[in-house]
Computed example of a mutant assay.
Amino acid sequence: MNLPSVLRDLGVLLLMLAWVVAAHVGSTGWGNADFNAAVAVLPIMAAVLMALWRLPQWVWRVVGVLALATALAWLWPRLRLNVALMYYLQHLGIHVALGVYFGKSLLGPGEPLITRMARRIFSHELSERKLRYTRGVTLAWTLFFFTNALVSTLLFIWAPPAIWSVHANLLTGPLIGLMFVIEHICRLFLLPPHERPGIADVVRAYKRESAQSGRGAGPSRP
C-alpha cells in the first residue's frame, strides 16, 4: 500500500468515526438542534440528489431539486425535533435492505449471494460442502440484519433514546465485525484450507458482486 491509499483509508475511517459520534450526539438530543438535523438529513438528501441526477432531462432535475428544497424548508421545524427518528429510519432501512438483498438470493432458482461471491474467488468448481456452507452463511447474514432491525425497533419504541442510540449508532459496527469473526472461526472448523478465502479475497469479491448488481447484470460464472 502506498501513502495516498493509506491516507485515503485513514480519512474514510475518521469520517466514519465522526459520523458515528455525530449520530449518537444528535440522537440523544445533545448539541445544536439545527446542526444535528442537518447531519441526520444529509444521507437522505444525498440519495435523493443522486436519484435526481440520473433523470434523463435536466428540467426534471431542476424541478426535483426545487421540490426537495421546498419540502425540506417546510419540514425543517419538525425534523430538528425528531433527529433520533431520522437516524432510526436510516438504520432500519439499511438493515432491511441488506436483509432483503441477502435473503432474496436464497429464494428461487438462483444461487445464494455468498455462493456467488465464492465463485468469484475460486477458479475451481465448488464442492457440495462449500455450497452448503455458503448457503448457511447467506442465511446467517440475512437473520443478522433482520434481527438487528427488530432489536433496533423495539429499543426505539420502548427504551430511552440514549439506550437505542448506543445499540444503533455505537454497537452496529462492532456487531458486524463480530459476525465476521464468528464466520471466520466457523470457516476454520468447517472448511479445508484450500476452500477458505482470505479476508482480502472476500472484500474484493464483495466489491465485484456489488458492482455487478449495480449494473443490473447477472453474476458471471467461470
Rank of each mutant, 00 (worst) to 15 (best):
H167V: 02
R119H: 14
G26H: 12
W19I: 06
L107R: 04
L190T: 11
M86R: 00
P56Y: 09
F156L: 08
L55R: 15
K104N: 04
L13H: 04
M45N: 07
V62P: 03
A37P: 13
L3I: 14
D9P: 00
G173V: 15
S105P: 02
L150F: 12
R221M: 08
E183P: 11
Q90N: 01
G110H: 04
I114N: 02
L155A: 06
W74E: 04
V202E: 11
L42E: 01
P222V: 06
L170C: 11
A140Y: 07
V20A: 11
L126E: 05
R187F: 03
I44S: 11
V59K: 12
S152T: 12
R120T: 08
G29E: 03
L66S: 14
F145W: 12
E183M: 07
F145N: 12
L13S: 13
A22M: 09
L85D: 13
A46P: 07
E183D: 09
L190G: 01
D9I: 08
H167A: 06
W76A: 00
T138I: 11
L98C: 09
W58S: 07
L72K: 02
Y88C: 02
A18N: 06
L81V: 05
G218S: 01
L188N: 07
W60M: 04
S105F: 06
V63P: 06
R196Q: 13
A73V: 15
H91S: 13
G103A: 12
S5H: 10
R116P: 00
G110A: 11
P174V: 02
L42D: 00
A205W: 10
P192Q: 10
E209G: 00
V96W: 11
T134Q: 09
L170M: 06
S220T: 13
T134D: 03
L155Y: 08
R215I: 00
R119T: 04
L178K: 02
H184A: 11
G93D: 01
I157D: 03
L81Y: 03
D34G: 04
E195A: 12
R129C: 05
V21Q: 06
I44D: 04
P222D: 08
T153W: 14
G64I: 14
L188Y: 04
G216K: 01
Y87V: 06
K207C: 02
V21Y: 08
V137C: 10
R221W: 07
L188I: 05
L143S: 06
